[in-house]
Design a binder for these strands. Structure first.
Lengths: 234, 234
DNA sequence: GAATTTAGTGTATGTTTTACACTTTTGTAT
DNA sequence: ATACAAAAGTGTAAAACATACACTAAATTC
């Protein structure tokens, strides 16, 4: 026996939901689709899964092709299998979401694709079921970040507490008290204070912090409860 | 254009991780695989995704075929795509996990399959990457149940607080204080006390409770923190 | 009616979360 | 040089929540 007979084989793709943060708001990287159908319309970056390639490999490959980045935070979101999701031919898609430092991306941008960052609140129309994927990814990010310290992945290596706070505020659409916020964040002991300050955005300047990568890896499963009323989340 | 040319099409399957609770311990429903390869070995219940059928449909169909049950708690766990996971031919699988009332199953059992409940702690060897799927499902169940009131799905319509507590204790391998437990559970106001008692397991008898299905649907996203130290979970 | 078994309940203590306001720093404008 | 503006940084008191802990109540069995 070498094959399962009488079964239908289906195209399998991956799609990447790529989040970035520019210091102000959460953004999503979309590309102009370069094949028919829907050629020229905005889309998640994706690609077919190749023979001998796992989903993770495929998603990593796709992400690297677009951003030049490797070793970034990536997590499987869900598989999408509606028979009608691609009008040309049935294609199932395994969606991954990534958190990247938007500045690193800018340096490494490949111009092979028409790619553009869109504020998460002003997304253009996207093809197929991609808006569905994006919606789910946003939800999962909010959910997960309420308990796990993953938002660091969106920031540069050195960042300030006000920057981190505004990231949380952006993602949860909530104003947080800076005293309570810094106490909570620092109580994780995941952050290491640096000697230098970021002086672009304020006269006084705010101290930089770095993530303690070792502790971060160990403590990833520490539930943090950063958000005052996680009840309100899905 | 009617097809994506030059792309490889792949077999797509679903597998169901079916949890049940017999009042003592958490169990998993496995079947004896009835096709080659690995015919006769223990396996999750699964099946190929058919043309025109979504993943949810396929998983629901597979679950119904085995258990006779519909409208049960079911959630996508993850897609598994290792190119080597099926030795015969590349097959990707979308795994779903379900929580069912084990008693309902017993009544409706289909004997078309050799199926058997195994205590989660004494599982036999299973085929392919199924132990991996099971491990992930166990983790997700523990994770999710720490915040969401889903374990009710494993119980019959009427249940007692001691039964519910022993379910939590089983799943988290922890002894819980019954005073604290009942306070926490009842504070959700999700349970409605019944007038009758369960008198099998004790002389005094314990009052039955029913889930308030309406509130349950609304409050599903209330994070409950049933478990004293969720830090310890993945 | 005594003994056994499990159900059911309350309180005091410690911990965590929340709400809240002033001082410090330093660049810019006069 | 001095005043002003703008954001950083810090502490405390009250409330809410989590925990630890032990006795009484109910009903069956002998």
């Amino acid at each position: 026996m070498t094959r399962y007979s009488r079964q239908t084989r289906i195209l399998v793709a991956v799609d990447c939901i790529i989040f970035g943060f520019d210091g102000q708001e959460l953004k999503l990287l979309l590309v102009k689709r370069h094949i028919e159908p829907e050629k020229g319309n905005w889309s998640l970056m994706g690609g077919f899964v190749e023979p001998g390639e796992s989903f993770e490999c495929a998603a990593t490959r796709v992400l690297k092709k677009l951003t030049g980045l490797e070793n970034v935070y990536m997590e499987q979101l869900s598989a999408f299998g509606d028979p009608e999701r691609d009008p040309i031919e049935r294609t199932v898609s395994v969606a991954y979401f990534s958190l990247i430092d938007i500045n690193k991306y800018i340096q490494q941008i490949s111009h092979e694709y028409d790619a553009e960052w869109f504020p998460i609140k002003k997304l253009p129309e996207v093809i197929f079921d991609h808006s569905n994927m994006i919606e789910m990814a946003k939800e999962k990010l909010r959910y997960k970040a309420a308990f796990h310290p993953i938002l660091f992945e969106l920031l540069p290596e050195k960042f300030t507490l006000p920057q981190l706070q505004s990231l949380y505020e952006g993602i949860y659409d909530a104003a947080l008290d800076k005293r309570n916020f810094s106490r909570k964040i620092l109580s994780t002991t995941l952050l290491v204070k640096q000697k230098d300050k970021e002086k672009e955005t304020s006269k006084r300047g705010a101290f930089y912090y770095k993530l303690d990568r070792k502790k971060y890896a160990n403590k990833f499963n520490a539930f943090l409860n950063f958000i005052p009323n996680p009840q309100k989340l899905k």
